[in-house]
């Protein structure tokens, strides 16, 4: 029979293509250490996917490469392989694989891994996002939204919110590069962000609000650190935002039709 394209793996491949500019710029401006970290993260994730394939018959997914990229880009520096492996394993298994694999997870595994590393080993410095790498987040967002694999509402709302906040002077501009990269890598994940139109706008605005709160109120936090924390709280709140949007939609339909 005739079948369309948008299976899980197609989405993963298109997402990967969208993240290419970001990944290439990051590798170009980074060094050997970055390459090693990416390879290590990919290897650990591949092993865990294989374990769950054999133990639970869960098909493996290319999304592991995206998770590896996010962890390698944003993890604290100088952790050493043991701590990194521990954090990635915790994120991949507890954040994604025990729920049934990519598509059934509630939070992004990279967000879980990064939060685990950040809270577990607070002594290590967070990476600086270089300005050219942050600019590369823009083509990533454009490709992702144009292909329909990144939620446009989240990215538009966050961009508009951040622009307004910078114009009003409440969002310090040193937070912007990290917040932008975390937005496209973690917050705008199609699975764990909100799925209704209104929910997506609320999701983007909530992320910006949390970034503003942490940037102004969290003393001594690195930009990547508070952006990741904001991403974690936002993805935990996403189902609630969806529920709010759906409740409004039900109420609107009940008013219009007298029944749902």
């Amino acid at each position: 029979m005739i079948r369309g394209l948008w299976t899980r793996e197609t989405v993963a491949i298109v997402l990967l293509a969208a993240y290419l500019p970001l990944a290439l710029f990051w590798l170009w401006f980074g060094g050997m250490e970055e390459v090693q970290r990416l390879a290590l993260a990919a290897l650990v994730l591949a092993i865990w996917h294989l374990v769950f394939l054999l133990a639970r018959a869960q098909p493996i997914s290319l999304s592991a490469v995206i998770t590896a990229l996010a962890v390698a880009m944003l993890a604290p520096e100088g952790l050493g392989p043991f701590r990194l492996i521990l954090g990635i394993s915790f994120g991949a298994v507890m954040g994604e694989l025990v729920f049934g694999g990519w598509g059934r997870n509630v939070v992004n595994p990279a967000t879980v891994a990064l939060s685990f590393l950040g809270f577990g080993f607070p002594g290590f410095p967070w990476p600086e996002i270089m300005t050219p790498v942050a600019w590369a987040a823009i083509p990533t967002a454009v490709i992702g939204v144009f292909m329909g694999v990144l939620p446009g509402g989240v990215i538009f709302a966050a961009t508009l919110g951040a622009t307004g906040a910078v114009a009003l002077g409440v969002l310090p501009s040193f937070a912007l590069p990290a917040a932008g990269v975390v937005l496209v890598l973690l917050v705008a994940d199609p699975v764990t962000s909100a799925t209704t139109m209104l929910g997506r706008w609320l999701n983007g605005l909530l992320y910006v609000a949390l970034v503003i709160l942490f940037a102004t109120g969290w003393q001594d936090a690195a930009p990547v650190q508070f952006a990741v924390a904001a991403a974690l709280l936002t993805s935990l709140a996403a189902p609630v935002l969806d529920e709010v949007a759906l409740a409004l939609w039900y109420a609107q339909r009940r008013r219009r039709h007298g029944r749902s």
């Binding site: 948008w6 694999g101 990519w102 329909g148």
Partner: peptide, 19 residues
């Protein structure tokens, strides 16, 4: 076959095409 097939259907990923 083992890598691509499974007992449960693969989950759907929300995308603009689905909307």
């Amino acid at each position: 076959a083992a890598l691509t097939r499974s007992a449960t259907p693969k989950p759907m990923i929300p995308s603009a095409a689905l909307d």
